[in-house]
Amino acid sequence: MKKHILFSLAIGSLFVLTGCENTNVWEEEQYIKQAYLVGIGEEGALVTRNVNYADESAETFVSVGTSGSLNPDGDIHCTLIEDPSGITSYNQKYKSSTEIQYQALPAANYNISSMNAVIRAGESYARIPVAIHPEGLHCDSLYALPLKMESCKEYPVAQAETVVLFAIKTYNNYSGYYNYIGTNNGASFSLIRNAVAVNKNTIRIYYTGTEELARAKDTGLTITVNEDNTLSLAGWKNLNVTEGSGSYDPQNKTFSFTCKVNGNEVEAYLISATASEE
């Protein structure tokens, strides 16, 4: 009987000890503590920020974080720097010589309030505000703000050499995919078109043929929504557009217009297919 009692006590003690050990495990850090710039794990360290041309100053954020199973018990101080070499490296690795290359976002088009971030005790992230001024950004160019973490006082920096590219993608209240239907010199057509934002109230479509950037100068049609929802139409580069008029229906997100394109009579409609950002 004594042997059975002693055995039971031993088993019970084992469970108690194991329970205590498990409790201590979860109260202790299980991983290496590091600071990192959010975005280093994305393919090519490329992170997209959508910006509306209608916003004179669009606010977005850059985030820094800490790894580990526990949040830090003290403030963590991180410093970022800009590193344009990251743009060159990305273009070389992910872009062919015939594709549009990323370029640095012009200094006049953004403002970073501070390059220092403080992750407060008990938290795992901190955000740095970035103001983007989209006016003047070209719709066919690729822009990026290249940042990396220069230092952290309290923790080592994860992937310290990785430059995160914050790519700026512009849109407006009218850009997106549309059903493009109508007649061109009496011949009916029905196409899907991606209306690209040119500025806060102008979009560009390809009035005919395939959507290839090389064809934009000859087939690009711009449509501007005026304050009274009437339309102004023009050719992007070489397209000859005359006698253009029309209107925009904001409730149904529909454009209707007539014009002459290179002398041909065009009557067309753009009916929103997505009602989403470009």
Rank of each mutant, 00 (worst) to 15 (best):
V163E: 01
C20F: 13
Y174W: 03
I100G: 00
N184T: 00
L17I: 15
K217M: 14
N199V: 06
N252A: 13
V130F: 15
E43I: 06
E123A: 13
G39D: 10
E29T: 07
N116E: 15
F61L: 05
G12M: 14
K253F: 06
V164M: 09
G12Y: 06
G19D: 10
L142G: 02
S96G: 14
Y90I: 07
Y125Q: 06
E265G: 00
E27V: 01
S113F: 10
Y180I: 03
N172R: 10
S97R: 11
K260I: 01
Y53L: 07
S97Y: 08
G41L: 15
I168K: 05
L137Y: 13
L37F: 03
T162P: 03
T210M: 13
N238K: 15
E99Q: 14
I81N: 03
N24S: 13
I87E: 08
N229M: 06
N252C: 09
Y90C: 02
T98K: 15
G19Q: 10
A126D: 08
L9D: 08
T258K: 14
N201D: 14
S124M: 08
V16G: 11
T219V: 10
G186N: 05
G182M: 07
L231M: 08
N71Q: 12
Q34P: 02
V130T: 08
N71R: 06
Y207M: 04
V241I: 12
V118Y: 03
G186E: 04
Y178L: 02
T258A: 09
F257G: 05
P146G: 11
G86C: 03
A45N: 10
V266K: 00
E99I: 01
S175D: 04
T183G: 00
E82K: 14
K200Y: 07
V196R: 14
Y207V: 14
Y171K: 05
V266C: 04
P84M: 02
N262G: 13
S245A: 13
E150I: 02
N52K: 09
T224P: 03
Q101N: 09
F255C: 06
Y171D: 04
L70Y: 09
I203K: 03
V25F: 15
L191C: 00
L239E: 11
I76F: 01
I100R: 09
N194R: 13
G41E: 15
E99H: 01
I223R: 09
Y177L: 09
D73M: 13
A214I: 15
D73P: 00
